[in-house]
């Protein structure tokens, strides 16, 4: 199935850790092949020190999305494949 295609402001590929949904399990950080996700020093409303994208290095591989157990905590923006 094709992914939803949207228009966004930021660079693609990239990813977003939705900070208030992150439980700080570190799985995205551990498994990211590019090592481009890290913990912030801040705590979110759930009381967890949450992860965030470093801002560069994402290849849109989707690993973080699948290793993250929270349904909505990670969004990955991939390049739209040319037909």
């Amino acid at each position: 199935m094709p992914d939803d295609v949207i228009e966004i402001a930021q660079d693609v590929p990239s990813l977003e850790v939705v900070s208030h949904l992150c439980k700080g399990c570190a799985l995205c950080i551990t498994h990211c092949p590019q090592r481009c996700i890290s913990f912030t020093e801040k705590f979110n409303e759930l009381g967890y020190k949450y992860a965030a994208y470093d801002g560069a290095g994402c290849t849109g591989c989707g690993v973080c999305f699948y290793v993250c157990p929270e349904p909505g905590a990670i969004i990955v923006y991939k390049k739209v494949r040319e037909r």
């Binding site: 949207i6 966004i8 999305f65 969004i75 991939k78």
Partner: peptide, 13 residues
């Protein structure tokens, strides 16, 4: 920029 999004599937509430 155009982006293909990998996000929470719609079968979730």
């Amino acid at each position: 920029m155009k982006a293909a999004v990998l996000k929470k599937p719609s079968a979730f509430y």
